Amino acid sequence: MSDMTAMELDEASGQAPRPLRERLSLGPFSDEWTAADWIVGSASVLLAIASAGFFGWSFVVSMKSPDYFQQAALANMPPKLDRIETGSIDVANAMPVPQIVRLSEPTPADYQIVMVFNNEALLATRNELMRVKVGSIVPGLGLVRTIDTEAGSPTVVAENATLHGAPATR
């Protein structure tokens, strides 16, 4: 009897054959679902599977290469082209700036060390305050060769002189 189809069973029992929809029925809810319900339900299941796959993939990638997503985001960013930061200038449209006019060129004796920080120094004369670092050219001192704070008092060694600051007080 297990070899008989549903249609043969209906004929054997003396009942009229059931319609195809009834024979393929998936349960009590199948009669209530419309085509739109099936489409929405199928799309929901596909979306859930795709989401799980995406999150699984992103988890595996982030475990194998933690910087992958940050590097990908930075690679897609346009370069920041600020004319001031890059140092390029447009000479034709440059804004005029005042020129420093000194009555006389400062001498090494005119300078004092105000502060030393992060391999930079603030040097002061009677009329000016300058921020210098190794490689700067300072009027009267020349090229700054080293800036040192390790000896207990700040020292700026330049081409024409060596400046010593007051020892740090604690």
Rank of each mutant, 00 (worst) to 15 (best):
F117S: 14
P17H: 03
N118M: 13
A73W: 04
I147V: 08
R23F: 00
E159G: 04
E105Y: 05
D67G: 09
Q70C: 00
V114H: 12
P106G: 05
L26Y: 00
G41S: 12
T34A: 09
R23H: 00
F55M: 10
D90T: 08
R21V: 08
S104D: 09
Q99Y: 01
P79I: 06
N127W: 11
L81A: 07
V134E: 13
V61R: 15
G140S: 10
E150L: 14
P28T: 12
A158M: 04
S58Y: 04
R131P: 01
L129S: 14
D67E: 13
L143T: 11
F29T: 14
A121C: 08
S58R: 13
P98Y: 02
S153R: 15
P154A: 04
G56I: 03
Y111E: 01
S30A: 14
D90G: 05
K80R: 06
M95A: 13
P139H: 02
R83C: 01
L81S: 06
E85M: 09
R23T: 04
P98T: 07
V60R: 13
E22L: 11
W57E: 04
A16S: 07
V144A: 08
N76S: 12
D37E: 09
E150K: 15
S51Q: 06
P78Q: 10
S58W: 03
L129V: 15
E159W: 07
P139C: 03
F59A: 15
L74N: 14
A43F: 04
P66V: 12
E128Y: 15
R83D: 05
T149M: 11
P108Q: 03
F59H: 15
L20S: 00
F59R: 15
F69C: 03
M115K: 15
P98D: 04
Y68H: 15
A92S: 10
W33N: 13
Q112F: 03
A50R: 01
I113V: 07
P79G: 04
P154T: 05
P108W: 02
D67N: 13
R18F: 05
R18P: 01
L103F: 02
K80T: 09
P79M: 07
V116W: 06
D148I: 07
A48D: 05
K80H: 00
S42M: 09
L123C: 04
M77H: 06
A124G: 01
L46D: 06
S153V: 02
S58D: 06
A158W: 03
P96C: 01
R145G: 00
I39G: 08
F117T: 09
K80C: 00
D67F: 09
D90K: 07
A50L: 11
S51P: 01
I49L: 15
D31F: 08
S136P: 04
P17Y: 06
P17R: 13
V156N: 01
G53Q: 11
N160R: 14
L26A: 10
V101T: 11
G135I: 12
A43K: 03
L26G: 13
A151N: 12
R131D: 03
I113A: 01
V97S: 13
S153G: 03
V144T: 08
V40K: 10
